[in-house]
Amino acid sequence: DLSALRVEEVQNVINAMQKILECPICLELIKEPVSTKCDHIFCKFCMLKLLNQKKGPSQCPLCKNDITKRSLQESTRFSQLVEELLKIICAFQLDTGLEYANSYNFAKKENNSPEHLKDEVSIIQSMGYRNRAKRLLQSEPENPSLQETSLSVQLSNLGTVRTLRTKQRIQPQRTSVYIELGSDSSEDTVNKATYCSVGDQELLQITPQGTRDEISLDSAKKAACEFSETDVTNTEHHQPSNNDLNTTEKRAAERHPEKYQGSSVSNLHVEPCGTNTHASSLQHENSSLLLTKDRMNVEKAEF
């Protein structure tokens, strides 16, 4: 173990290094160091905050020279020094078990990766560091076993998940096959086929009936047209017969005018059967003409 005197000496050296690497504005270890034209180094955030307070150039807090945003430059070497100082402080805390008085939040800088452990060898070769390295080497064999167990647990979990997924996939297939086998029997399929065939026959029977009705309507229309044509021909046949009657009536009127007047009046009210309204109107006109002729003949006879 380190003596108290040596611990104090190391602590004083760390404090001196820390004062050199402090920012003059925030009085902390410089984060993202930036250098000016006057070779003074500050935190990048502190300098941008200072420049944004005034429009135009501002003055350096140490030498009062003008500073602009374009004049600022990043210093990589200074950032490396800060990183190495942080590593020294971490090693000091691990070796002594004491917390550094002016320690900052170094938890963000710590890294437990194997590459980081290899890099620590180049920091300080001390008894405390050696003991700590031995402890780490002793704890390393235990870690692979834990990793193997965790991997086995994960693989077993994956296997159970896969088996569950396969079961879920197989179950719908089985149910679907069961439904297909038990849903419709052979008799049901035959009945469905016969039902479809009967429906098709009914459709075939319905369509000819409609065509037959249309044919019957067409035949009825044709018969009505033929009947009207026969009526017209009958009226045409009746007209010459009426003319013959008129000639006979004229002759009778010349011989017996008194008797014919009474008979002509009675004939006005008689309509021949089986004739249309057109034929009756023609008869009325003929009878009126005959009456006028008879009157003329009677007057001539009187004179």
Results as ranks from 00 to 15, higher is better:
D1Y: 05
L2F: 09
S3G: 07
L5Y: 06
R6C: 05
V7R: 07
V7M: 02
E8W: 01
E9C: 07
E9Q: 05
E9R: 10
V10A: 08
V10R: 14
V10N: 15
V13I: 03
I14F: 13
I14C: 13
I14S: 15
I14M: 01
N15A: 11
N15L: 08
A16L: 03
A16H: 01
M17G: 14
Q18E: 13
Q18H: 06
Q18W: 04
Q18T: 13
K19N: 03
K19D: 12
I20Y: 02
I25C: 04
C26V: 15
L27G: 09
E28L: 08
I30L: 05
I30F: 09
I30P: 06
K31R: 08
K31M: 14
E32M: 07
E32H: 11
P33V: 12
P33I: 14
P33F: 12
V34H: 09
S35P: 09
S35V: 05
T36N: 02
T36F: 02
K37M: 02
D39V: 04
I41S: 02
I41M: 15
F42I: 08
F42S: 05
C43Y: 15
K44H: 02
F45Q: 08
M47H: 03
M47L: 08
K49T: 04
K49F: 09
K49C: 03
K49S: 04
L50M: 07
L50D: 12
L51T: 08
K54W: 03
G56K: 00
G56I: 01
S58M: 02
Q59L: 02
C60E: 15
C60P: 15
P61F: 14
C63M: 14
C63V: 15
C63Y: 15
C63K: 15
K64Y: 03
K64M: 01
D66H: 04
D66A: 04
T68A: 08
K69P: 06
K69G: 13
R70K: 08
R70L: 10
Q73L: 14
Q73S: 12
S75R: 11
S75K: 14
S75M: 02
T76V: 10
T76S: 01
R77D: 09
R77S: 13
R77H: 02
F78K: 14
F78T: 10
S79R: 10
Q80S: 05
L81Y: 05
L81Q: 03
V82F: 11
E83S: 06
E84P: 06
L85N: 07
L85M: 04
L86R: 12
K87I: 03
K87L: 10
I88Y: 04
I89V: 08
C90W: 05
A91I: 15
L94R: 11
D95I: 15
D95R: 15
D95Y: 15
T96A: 04
E99I: 05
E99V: 01
E99S: 05
Y100L: 09
Y100C: 01
Y104T: 15
N105V: 08
N105L: 12
N105E: 13
F106M: 15
A107C: 07
A107V: 11
K108L: 08
K108Q: 06
N111S: 12
N112G: 01
K118S: 06
V121D: 14
V121Y: 08
S122E: 01
I123G: 13
I124P: 12
I124V: 06
Q125P: 10
Q125A: 03
S126V: 11
G128S: 06
Y129I: 13
N131M: 15
N131G: 03
N131A: 08
R132C: 05
R132H: 03
A133N: 11
A133R: 04
A133V: 05
K134A: 08
R135V: 02
R135H: 07
R135Y: 03
L136K: 02
L137A: 04
L137K: 06
Q138I: 06
S139Y: 03
S139L: 07
E140M: 13
E142C: 05
N143Q: 05
N143G: 10
N143L: 06
N143M: 04
N143F: 02
P144F: 07
S145Y: 01
S145K: 11
S145R: 02
L146Q: 11
Q147W: 02
Q147V: 01
E148R: 05
T149V: 00
S150G: 11
S150H: 01
S150V: 01
S152Y: 00
S152C: 06
V153N: 10
V153L: 05
Q154M: 01
L155M: 10
L155C: 08
S156I: 01
S156P: 13
N157L: 01
N157F: 02
N157W: 15
L158Q: 14
G159R: 12
G159S: 09
T160N: 10
T160W: 14
V161C: 03
T163S: 09
T163Q: 14
T163H: 10
L164I: 02
L164K: 12
L164A: 08
R165Q: 01
T166N: 15
T166I: 07
K167C: 00
R169N: 09
R169L: 07
R169T: 04
P172H: 10
Y178H: 13
E180K: 10
G182S: 14
D184T: 01
S185R: 05
T189I: 05
V190L: 07
K192T: 14
A193P: 14
T194W: 00
Y195D: 12
Y195M: 01
Y195S: 14
C196Y: 00
S197K: 01
S197N: 07
V198M: 08
Q201K: 05
Q201T: 14
Q201P: 09
E202N: 07
L203F: 03
L204T: 08
I206Q: 00
P208H: 04
P208C: 05
P208V: 00
P208E: 15
Q209K: 13
Q209I: 05
Q209T: 12
G210A: 02
T211D: 03
T211K: 06
T211N: 06
R212E: 14
R212C: 05
R212G: 09
R212I: 05
I215W: 12
D218V: 06
D218N: 08
S219C: 12
S219E: 10
S219N: 08
S219D: 06
K221Y: 00
K222A: 01
A223V: 04
C225K: 15
C225S: 13
C225N: 09
E226V: 01
F227S: 11
E229F: 00
E229K: 11
D231L: 06
V232G: 11
T233D: 09
E236L: 15
D244L: 04
D244T: 14
L245A: 12
L245I: 05
N246T: 04
T247S: 11
T247C: 08
T247I: 04
T248P: 14
T248S: 09
E249D: 09
K250M: 06
E254I: 00
E254W: 05
R255Y: 01
H256C: 03
P257C: 00
P257A: 12
E258N: 10
E258H: 13
E258W: 07
K259S: 03
Y260C: 07
Y260A: 13
Q261G: 11
G262R: 03
G262A: 10
G262M: 01
S263M: 13
S264N: 15
S264R: 04
S264P: 14
V265F: 01
V265Q: 12
V265Y: 03
S266T: 04
S266P: 06
N267K: 14
L268Y: 03
H269C: 03
P272N: 14
C273Y: 03
G274S: 08
T275L: 15
H278T: 04
A279C: 05
A279R: 12
S280N: 10
S281V: 07
S281I: 01
S281P: 07
Q283A: 03
E285C: 01
N286K: 11
L289I: 12
L290R: 05
L291G: 02
L291P: 13
K293M: 01
D294S: 10
N297K: 06
V298D: 10
V298A: 12
E299Q: 14
E299H: 00
E299I: 01
